[in-house]
Measured scan of single mutants.
Amino acid sequence: MAAAAAAGAGPEMVRGQVFDVGPRYTNLSYIGEGAYGMVCSAYDNVNKVRVAIKKISPFEHQTYCQRTLREIKILLRFRHENIIGINDIIRAPTIEQMKDVYIVQDLMETDLYKLLKTQHLSNDHICYFLYQILRGLKYIHSANVLHRDLKPSNLLLNTTCDLKICDFGLARVADPDHDHTGFLTEYVATRWYRAPEIMLNSKGYTKSIDIWSVGCILAEMLSNRPIFPGKHYLDQLNHILGILGSPSQEDLNCIINLKARNYLLSLPHKNKVPWNRLFPNADSKALDLLDKMLTFNPHKRIEVEQALAHPYLEQYYDPSDEPIAEAPFKFDMELDDLPKEKLKELIFEETARFQPGYRS
Rank of each mutant, 00 (worst) to 15 (best):
Ala4Cys: 00
Ala6Arg: 09
Ala9Thr: 12
Met13Tyr: 04
Val18Cys: 08
Phe19Trp: 10
Asp20Thr: 11
Gly22Arg: 14
Arg24Thr: 05
Thr26Tyr: 13
Asn27Gly: 07
Leu28Ile: 13
Cys40Thr: 07
Ser41Gly: 13
Ser41Arg: 00
Ala42Gly: 11
Asp44Ala: 13
Val46Pro: 13
Val49Ile: 13
Val49Asp: 12
Arg50Val: 12
Pro58Ile: 15
Phe59Tyr: 14
Glu60Asn: 13
Gln62Glu: 10
Cys65Val: 13
Leu69Arg: 13
Glu71Leu: 06
Glu71Tyr: 00
Arg77Ser: 04
His80Leu: 15
Ile83Pro: 01
Asn87Cys: 07
Ile89Pro: 00
Ile90Asp: 00
Arg91His: 13
Ala92Trp: 00
Ala92Pro: 02
Ala92Met: 03
Pro93Asp: 03
Pro93Gly: 09
Gln97Met: 09
Gln97Asp: 13
Met98Arg: 08
Lys99Leu: 03
Val101Ser: 07
Tyr102Cys: 07
Ile103Lys: 12
Val104Ser: 05
Val104Pro: 08
Thr110Asp: 09
Asp111Cys: 06
Leu116Phe: 06
Leu116Pro: 07
Thr118Lys: 11
Leu121Trp: 02
Asn123Leu: 07
His125Asn: 13
Ile126Tyr: 03
Cys127Lys: 02
Cys127Thr: 05
Phe129Asp: 08
Leu130His: 00
Ile133Glu: 01
Arg135Trp: 01
Gly136Leu: 05
Lys138Ala: 10
Tyr139Gln: 09
Tyr139Asp: 04
His141Glu: 09
His141Lys: 10
Ser142Asn: 02
Val145Gly: 11
Leu146Glu: 10
Leu146Ala: 08
Asp149Ile: 00
Leu150Ile: 02
Ser153Cys: 13
Thr159Pro: 13
Asp162Ser: 00
Ile165Phe: 15
Asp167Gln: 08
Phe168Leu: 15
Ala171Ile: 10
Arg172Trp: 03
Pro176Ile: 08
His178Asp: 08
His180Asp: 05
Thr181Asp: 06
Thr181Gln: 06
Phe183Lys: 03
Leu184Met: 14
Tyr187Lys: 03
Tyr187Asp: 12
Ala189Leu: 12
Thr190His: 02
Arg194Trp: 04
Ile198Cys: 12
Met199Ala: 10
Asn201Gln: 07
Lys203Met: 11
Tyr205Thr: 10
Tyr205Arg: 13
Lys207Met: 15
Asp210Ala: 12
Cys216Met: 07
Cys216Asn: 01
Ile217Lys: 04
Ala219Glu: 13
Ala219Phe: 11
Asn224Cys: 05
Asn224Gln: 10
Asn224Pro: 02
Gly230Arg: 04
Gly230Pro: 03
Lys231Trp: 00
Lys231Gln: 04
His232Cys: 03
His232Tyr: 09
Leu234Val: 10
Asn238Ser: 10
Asn238Trp: 11
Asn238Glu: 08
His239Val: 05
His239Asp: 12
Leu241Lys: 09
Gly242Ser: 10
Gly242Lys: 12
Gln249Ser: 03
Cys254Asp: 08
Ile255Gly: 06
Asn257Leu: 10
Asn257Val: 07
Ala260Ile: 01
Asn262Thr: 01
Tyr263Thr: 05
Leu265Val: 04
Pro268Val: 09
Lys270Val: 04
Asn271Met: 11
Pro274Arg: 12
Pro274Phe: 00
Arg277Val: 10
Leu278Gln: 15
Phe279Glu: 03
Ala282Asn: 02
Lys285Ile: 15
Leu287Ala: 03
Leu289Glu: 04
Leu289Asp: 01
Asp291Ser: 04
Asp291Trp: 02
Lys292Val: 05
Lys292Trp: 02
Thr295Ser: 14
Thr295Trp: 03
Phe296Pro: 01
Asn297Pro: 03
Lys300Thr: 05
Glu303Met: 10
Leu308Ile: 04
Pro311Asn: 03
Pro311Thr: 14
Pro311Ser: 11
Leu313Glu: 01
Gln315Arg: 10
Tyr317Thr: 12
Tyr317His: 01
Asp318Gly: 00
Asp318Ser: 02
Asp321Gln: 03
Asp321Pro: 00
Glu326Ile: 02
Glu326Tyr: 03
Pro328Val: 06
Phe329Ile: 15
Lys330Val: 05
Asp332Cys: 02
Leu335Ser: 08
Leu335Arg: 12
Asp337Trp: 10
Leu338Met: 14
Leu338Val: 06
Pro339Gly: 11
Pro339Ser: 13
Lys342Met: 06
Glu349Ser: 02
Thr351Cys: 01
Arg353Pro: 05
Gln355Cys: 09
Pro356Arg: 11
Gly357Asp: 15
Gly357Asn: 05
Tyr358Asn: 09
